[in-house]
């Protein structure tokens, strides 16, 4: 492997976690569209995450769980079904990263958002509905409680020390563990791509 790490590798991670009890939480909720042209270096980027759930129109804070002092600084979200559905906006993951969030635990994560997480060193962990509900309940009962994740062994330790195992695509795991970005990986196949493009063009001359 000649590719060099370009994003923070994800090996083990332990942090306090925040429960988000919203099924089908779409990426419009994760970052409203009006922030999509902002650069990731914008000093306010961390505020864009879940903005309209966290802030009133006058900028004051709502009573949304994310604003409770015990959950501030949480590096892990425990969400509900179909987290990140809707728009392909990768800004949703940029907003997670801007808040130091490195993992999202949910029963299911929408396909495009899932890929976007992998591309940015954020680990999506899929546990069952019941396991996620249990974790969210534990976090509500014990605000500030920690969850620990070990990607190599694909295990997660809940606030009550219960150990869970999770599945992940081996390629996604490899990229996260090593902090690899796809372009560097792909360019290892540079010659193969060039040869393929030529043979494809010969077979599909009309498609050029």
């Amino acid at each position: 492997m000649t590719a060099a790490p370009t994003i923070d590798p994800f090996r083990t991670f332990a942090s306090s976690a925040v429960p988000i009890d919203i099924a089908n939480c779409d990426t419009d909720q994760i970052i409203p569209a009006r922030f999509l042209r902002k650069g990731s270096d914008d000093p306010d980027y961390a505020r864009f995450l879940l903005h309209d759930l966290r802030f009133n129109t006058d900028g004051s804070e709502t009573n949304f769980v994310f604003n409770e002092p015990a959950y501030r600084g949480a590096g892990i979200l425990v969400a509900d079904k179909n987290w990140g559905c809707g728009s392909s906006r990768e800004n949703a993951v940029t907003a997670l990263v801007a808040n130091g969030i490195r993992a999202v635990i949910a029963p299911s994560v929408a396909d495009i958002h899932y890929s976007n997480c992998i591309q940015n060193g954020v680990l999506p962990v899929r546990l069952s509905d019941e396991e996620c509900a249990t974790l969210r309940a534990q976090l509500r009962d014990g605000p500030g409680a920690e969850i620990a994740i070990d990607l190599e062994t694909q295990t997660l330790t809940g606030p009550d020390q219960t150990r869970y195992t999770f599945e992940i695509d081996p390629f996604d795991k490899h990229r996260l563990l090593n902090g690899l970005d796809d372009i560097s990986l792909t360019l290892e196949h540079d010659t193969t791509i060039t040869e393929f493009a030529a043979s494809y063009a010969a077979r599909h001359s009309w498609a050029g």
Binding site: S88, E90, I112, S115, N116, Q119, D181, D182, I183
Partner: peptide
């Protein structure tokens, strides 16, 4: 549909 890192890719 792809994300912006995939667009660059």
């Amino acid at each position: 549909g792809i994300g912006s890192t995939e667009v660059q890719h």
